[in-house]
């Protein structure tokens, strides 16, 4: 089969969505088919740019391009859902969140207040609903996305999980007394919660944070302010090999982000057989972490997180058991590219 994977991109930014598209192409090719990513730039503002983008995708006919017949089109992101093809399958990374779950929040103030914003919202929801009705199958990357799709568009969909990039290479090792948190250093990832929590931790556990990002100076300042230089380290970017080792040796992984759609970190922690500390408002991670069985789900408060960290440190046997239970849970979920391809193609 010849398969087109349609997506949009913000040039020069490579995040989870780009990795997902790359992983999908690779997996489809492995399965013996032809596949290519077809992408266009996307502008989040102004409103007429969003509308222009919607029009472009709406006018694209994917049945055949320059004499190449396309057997199947897989749509990943808004507004690729509107392209024309008789065999369309959706695997939604996320919808246009500005007019859905982020509508009327501080993130979209200018848009939510304006008339043209309200008009855009109406238009998108209507056209999305219409488009999804024409899909052969609708999948999402996680239940959080499915729930939104159901509540806003009344469309049923299935969550189809994909494995993290290095899934085959994870291993586990003896726990050392540190909590590991790899993520970009950004407000929504809430590294500040962990840093504050470290001031309440009674055990000698330390925190190792991996990743770069705009909030780095702010976090560094916090560490200094709380005098945590010997308890919290920002390690910056590290190699894949280091990443695997720091997962393997940690006491537990912290993933207390704010309402993440999916979150590979949770899965990576499970692959390394480590318990995950996550928060009640962290989103995707809650689909995987079972409180007290594969990790600890706590309120997004520093004291609560500190307690969870101490709990892992002072009950290391239990912590290790939770880690193992996490790995077993991962294995029972059949998270693999083979499964993704199977579901999307057949």
């Amino acid at each position: 089969m010849r398969i087109a994977i349609a997506t949009v991109q913000v040039p020069f930014i490579r995040g989870g969505a780009e990795m997902l598209a790359a992983g999908l192409v690779e997996a489809i090719r492995q399965a013996g088919h032809e596949a290519d990513v077809i992408s266009m730039p996307f502008h989040f503002y102004p409103v007429r740019e969003v509308q222009r983008s919607m029009e472009i995708w709406n006018s694209e006919n994917f049945a055949a391009i320059n004499g190449y017949n396309i057997d199947l089109a897989i749509c990943l992101k808004f507004p690729t859902f509107y392209l024309k093809h008789s065999d369309k399958v959706a695997w939604i990374i996320h919808q246009h969140r500005a007019v859905y779950d982020l509508w009327d929040t501080p993130f979209t103030q200018g848009l939510s207040d304006s008339d043209e914003g309200k008009q855009l919202r109406k238009e998108i929801i209507q056209r999305d609903t219409h488009a999804f009705q024409g899909f052969k199958k609708v999948f999402t990357i996680a239940k959080t996305v499915s729930h939104r799709l159901h509540s806003f568009n009344q469309i049923d969909s299935t969550a189809l999980y994909n494995p993290p990039k290095l899934a085959n290479y994870f291993y586990t090792a003896t726990a050392e007394p540190y909590i590991f948190f790899p993520s970009r250093l950004e407000t929504l990832k809430r590294q500040d919660l962990l840093i504050k929590a470290m001031t309440y931790v009674k055990s000698p556990t330390v925190a190792l944070l991996v990743g770069e990002g705009g909030q780095r100076p702010h976090f560094l300042q916090m560490i200094e302010e709380f005098d945590l230089q010997q308890r919290v380290k920002l390690m910056g970017r590290i190699s894949d090999e280091d990443m695997l080792a720091f997962y393997a040796h940690c006491l537990g992984v912290f993933f207390g982000v704010h309402n993440e759609d999916y979150g590979y970190v949770t899965l990576e922690a499970m692959l390394a057989a480590k318990p995950v500390i996550t928060c009640t408002d962290s989103g995707g991670s809650l689909e995987f972490v079972i409180n007290h069985q594969t990790g600890l789900v706590v309120e997004p408060e520093p004291e609560a997180i500190a307690q969870a960290i101490d709990q892992l440190y002072f009950n290391q046997k239990t912590a290790a058991q939770m880690g193992r239970a996490g790995l077993e849970r991962y294995q029972s979920l059949n998270i693999s590219w083979e499964n993704v391809v199977q579901k999307l193609l057949y």
């Binding site: 003896t174 007394p177 000698p204 330390v206 190792l208 010997q230 380290k233 280091d242 695997l244 080792a245």
Partner: peptide, 22 residues
């Protein structure tokens, strides 16, 4: 191995140890 009576942990040494293993 974590020793619970070890009240101070040297972060840099910890990081170095894991890097060496890598």
């Amino acid at each position: 191995m974590i020793e619970s009576n070890n009240s101070e942990i040297n972060v840099d040494r910890l990081i170095k140890k894991i890097r060496e293993e890598v």
